[in-house]
Design a protein around this nucleic acid. Structure first.
Lengths: 162, 162
DNA sequence: CCCATCTGTAACGATAATTGTTACTAATAC
DNA sequence: GTATTAGTAACAATTATCGTTACAGATGGG
């Protein structure tokens, strides 16, 4: 199963826009940084737009920009905007209702899933887009932020200069 | 992508075994409660066995039973034993290394993923199989445990009585 | 007013993981 | 020895994701 990377790409997009400030970015430009097709970007932008995190404009010299200040966008809002999927799935087929365990296990698992998701949300609500941007642009004269641990996976694809 | 339900089924299996005590359960019996094929059960049992959570025995009157007391098995161990998958995926293709954001975003996302997984683990390490079993077998005279919220999804399949 | 530009979105193929299934080997108890 | 059971390989069906092409609709500049 190719796992869902929409959350990762959404954070990438919003970080680019935080860096661009008021200037709207085109989906082509964003796609070049993310290294994917512009339609993939527009699909995610659409979700972010519905969640009120970005503002898009069609037409010539259009594009998208943040609807809020980077310090007011938490990763929890991003996580909810794109459908990132559950941490784990329940039974594909409902268990045997004639078994004392099968009868009740789904409820128990559902409750566990709920608690786990809350654990995820407690972490995500503390991280803002501003924080992500700062972590990848460490101020000169200081150590790099602990978040930035970039790998160097090259895949031999043409990459435009930005 | 069909999301991974191995964790859910593993918890189901271990709860059944906690209830069975010392008596070993056959993969056929477990499969009947989980409502799936015995091979699916054996695959997960194999992972649980490698993690030291269950003990299996081949041959006539064989089967599997818990290797530890239910109170000593946390869902975190179960989560690690079966490969439950990441909470979110990183970029399918590496981002553009020529972009200041693309250059560093993977490290930032990796760091975020790490923090999120820790949030998940903090929740799971507090829940034991014993607790799950108790939550689906509320003692008489008390209220049902808050975890049990069973639905009644019937799918018109034959279900053996256990 | 017209037209190039850009978003929004539908449609489709390739890819990849999961689950269910059959089939077989190896181990074990009676 | 023989029936029983776990372990495991192999394959099909299902399904979500991602990339891609195509096109309609909106918008701003000339």
């Amino acid at each position: 199963m190719p796992a869902n990377s929409r959350f990762a790409i959404a954070v990438h997009i919003l970080t680019l826009m935080a860096r661009a400030g008021d200037e709207p970015l085109k989906s082509d430009e964003v796609a070049c940084s993310v290294n994917t097709n512009p339609v993939v970007i527009r699909r995610i932008l659409c979700a972010l737009s519905k969640a009120g995190l970005v503002i898009s404009q069609t037409g010539a010299s259009g594009g998208s920009r943040l609807a809020l200040k980077p310090s007011r966008i938490t990763l929890l809002e991003v996580y909810r905007a794109v459908d990132a999927g559950d941490v784990f799935a329940l039974h594909p087929q409902p268990p045997n209702a004639k078994c004392p365990v099968g009868m009740n296990i789904e409820g128990a698992l559902d409750s566990i899933l709920h608690e786990v998701e809350q654990g995820v949300e407690r972490v995500l609500e503390k991280i803002t887009i501003e924080k992500v941007l700062k972590s990848i642009e460490p101020r000169r004269g200081r150590r790099a932020a602990p978040v930035a641990r970039a790998e160097n996976r090259s895949v031999g694809k043409k990459e435009r200069e930005l």
